[in-house]
């Protein structure tokens, strides 16, 4: 495994009509770590992450995934990249006509030669990993918001991808459930050794799980670095964002205890 970043944004611009969402975003995402991108809602975090797997194409710039530029990749190159990725969508994006377990087993049906019994066993294993054992036959409509996200997470990792993208894993959840998801992400990173990219507007969650944090604001990544660097940012907007979070000490005080 190389030290080169697994994902690399180079001066990415993206507009929808007259709405300019990304105005030149450049940064590297290291392999095997958890990178969090925060920012107020509506700044383009989802837009940013969708560029990584080619769900959106930039107006200009490059998104390198190893040596493939997703901005100019062929359909088959995109497919090859996507097979290395899992993604948890904001609302879970589960298929309503399938049960929880069938949703998890779904990618196996199309990308492996497993028998139905093997697929079921694998899906049950992943459901247990996200702490939802025995929910295979539960209809999707009967799941709570937190359960949906966890089933979505199980589906995202069922093919054991190298990289998992999370779009707001905590949004819409109560603090307890939110903490459970954070703990789950932390544990999975240790157990599975994957690269995680987490989009969130929740700074607490960021501090819980991230190795590196970036802040997207007004179309640009205005701060990007290790958690320590981020907490000591001298950018007014970053400090403002940190200060507004009730669970944190005031930005003027020591933000993290010295080692």
């Amino acid at each position: 495994m190389s030290d080169a970043p697994i994902i690399r944004f180079v001066d990415v611009h993206k507009s929808f009509g007259s709405l300019s969402v990304l105005k030149g975003v450049s940064f590297d995402i290291p392999r095997g770590q958890t990178t969090a991108i925060i920012g107020p809602s509506g700044t383009g975090k989802s837009v940013l992450i969708k560029h990584v797997v080619g769900l959106l194409e930039p107006d200009s710039g490059h998104i390198w995934v190893d040596d493939v530029d997703m901005a100019h990749a062929s359909e088959s190159q995109k497919l090859a990249v996507r097979k290395r990725f899992g993604m948890l969508f904001q609302g879970g994006a589960l298929f309503d006509s399938l049960t929880a377990g069938e949703n998890v087993a779904f990618p196996l049906r199309y990308h492996t030669r497993m028998s139905e019994a093997e697929r079921r066993a694998k899906a049950e294993e992943k459901l247990a990993l996200v702490e939802l054992p025995g929910l295979y036959d539960r209809p999707t409509s009967a799941l709570s918001g937190g359960q949906r996200k966890r089933v979505g997470l199980a589906r995202a990792i069922v093919l054991e991808p190298e990289v998992v993208l999370f779009d707001e894993p905590n949004s819409g959840l109560d603090p307890m459930t939110s903490d459970t998801i954070d703990a789950l992400i932390g544990r999975m990173k240790q157990e599975l050794g994957m690269t995680f990219v987490v989009i969130t507007h929740d700074i607490v969650s960021c501090l819980n799980i991230a190795d590196r944090i970036g802040m997207l604001y007004d179309g640009k990544l205005i701060e990007y670095g290790t958690v320590d660097q981020f907490l000591h940012s001298n950018q007014a907007i970053v400090r403002d964002f940190l200060k507004r979070n009730a669970d944190l000490p005031p930005a003027s005080g020591p933000l993290i205890p010295p080692p």
Binding site: L55, M87, G91, Y110, H111
Partner: peptide, 17 residues
């Protein structure tokens, strides 16, 4: 349409289907 707005179509794409 429901699948589109609930990002299920995006999910299919990411699952390489």
């Amino acid at each position: 349409a429901v699948m589109r707005i609930r990002e299920q179509i995006d999910a299919l794409e990411v699952m390489a289907i």
